[in-house]
Design a protein around this nucleic acid. Sequence first.
DNA 1: CGCCAATTGTTTAAACTTAAAGAAATAAGA
DNA 2: TCTTATTTCTTTAAGTTTAAACAATTGGCG
Lengths: 164, 164
Amino acid sequence: MILDSETKAVELPEDHGNELRLWLRLLTCTTLIEGEVRGRLRERFDVTLPRFDLMAQLDKVPDGMTLSDVSKRMMVSNGNVTGLVERLVESGHVDRRTSDTDRRVQVIRLTKTGRAEFRKMAAEHETWIAQIFSDLTPKDVRELMRLLAKTKASARKSARMRDL
Amino acid sequence: MILDSETKAVELPEDHGNELRLWLRLLTCTTLIEGEVRGRLRERFDVTLPRFDLMAQLDKVPDGMTLSDVSKRMMVSNGNVTGLVERLVESGHVDRRTSDTDRRVQVIRLTKTGRAEFRKMAAEHETWIAQIFSDLTPKDVRELMRLLAKTKASARKSARMRDL
DNA sequence: CGCCAATTGTTTAAACTTAAAGAAATAAGA
DNA sequence: TCTTATTTCTTTAAGTTTAAACAATTGGCG
């Protein structure tokens, strides 16, 4: 504890420049890659990134998910998902029905054509990502995975503490 | 080169699952931190993240920047910056004038109050970031910086190759 | 000079995104 | 049971974002 000349507690401004620079670099990487993927999805398949992301969530489950599940997994607001799903239903990629056991719940699934189209997009998408990271060695990839896991845990803890 | 039974060239589908998982984890980290920062900026200062980011760019230069410079640095579209600047001029945080030497160019700067407000926000912002990364050791931070620099370079190279 | 290309910024339409308020249904507890 | 809280989803208003088309200006080059 540090006390000033009139005996009040004082916070010394610490230097957190390294963490700030790390955050900016992380943001730069993500923005860069996101832009690249967005552009390729549009050029090759005329699809937007949010639509692709939502379909990716649905592709992982055969029996569909609720809108809340999608919202939590994508870390976006509920209202956002409502709009995205509306457009994907409109375009025939997604099927939506009310749950039999809980009439609040909407269950959404990929349609047959939606799933087929997504699989084609996903296959190419994976090669783009591989190319984007192609200068990293397998060891780099493992190390990044480990450090980002630690980062994720630290950020979540920080978010939980703020919620109190 | 791999040939199939009828002597045509065939691409073997390689496994790029690790790179894909790395990308998703990177995206998760960024989304998580971005949401945390966005919420705090709104609660504490009633300011949006894009406005804060733009002011952060301007704070680094005393004599102002052109809209194109801001656009490149923030990695967002020109039209996006036009709108953001319009609102920041409206709220009195940013000053805008046409360049003396090139009438196409708009030079924008922080106003006195804009700079003062930003400095206050930035000081707290830095402590939030430090808290978010607080479970990382200094070595972790250095390693992440290094690996993300490599990632950034790899992604940029990939983007350049696509532009050809 | 005069044309042509490139740069700079704005406008437009559509989509995305959030936060907040609200509606409907379910769950929980007195 | 009845009331209250919670969950789920939608709606709304405002703001952000992009891609594309456009206007204005500058620079290069014959």
